[in-house]
Design a protein around this nucleic acid. Structure first.
Lengths: 100, 100
DNA sequence: CCCATATTTGGTCATATTGCCAAATAACGA
DNA sequence: TCGTTATTTGGCAATATGACCAAATATGGG
């Protein structure tokens, strides 16, 4: 049972929300880091090199887009990719960049 | 000879630029329309339903990202997809949306 | 219960985005 | 060359974004 693709204005708005979530260097870096496994916010903050509050807000954007999920264990919150196919985007994006 | 993927800050910034270009409902709609073939700005303006100047600026964003190319023939400017793999994004984006 | 730690939330500020309109530019035809 | 058509450009106003800091909110340990 595959989903039926529709093309209403809302459909494109929802899709754009997902793409937009990936349209920031820090958030792309977060997705790349999470491709290697689950990470806590503290680790991700090190990777990004910005304030933890800033990283937390980037993670919220990714979570609301449906790209990552969080899991609180003790004091830490661990994030991981929800839908791994977003990693395929990197291939095509690099193809776009190579072609220009 | 495949390109070597590097992960500098600039690499992520460039990738994010491509994703960001796709992170707007009108621009996603433009890509979708161009997936069915080359189109002039006048046709695309009809599809989007905004001012032609607005559509022209969206097309410039896509062009600068390396996603589309333009071809002026007479009075009209025709746009087409430069790297078709961006169409694969739709599948995964819809998977993300279905999962949330 | 109190303290330390991890994370989120709220506020603020600077900057970027996106829409429209008007004007500039380019190309064709009479 | 003049007028028409297609497109781009520049400017403006409203809104959104992203960074920081400070404060609020868990949670676990002693």
């Amino acid at each position: 049972m595959q989903p039926i693709r529709t093309d209403t204005a809302e459909d494109f708005a929802r899709r754009a929300q997902v793409m937009k979530a990936l349209g920031h260097p820090s958030r792309l870096r977060l997705v790349d880091e999470l491709s290697r496994g689950e990470r806590c916010v503290c680790d991700l903050t090190q990777v990004i090199g910005h304030d933890m509050s800033t990283v937390s807000k980037h993670l919220r954007v990714l979570r609301k887009a449906g790209i990552v999920v969080d899991d609180k264990r003790g004091l830490q919150v661990f994030y991981r990719l929800k839908v791994p196919c977003v990693l395929n985007f990197f291939h095509c994006v690099d193809a776009v960049l190579d072609a220009r």
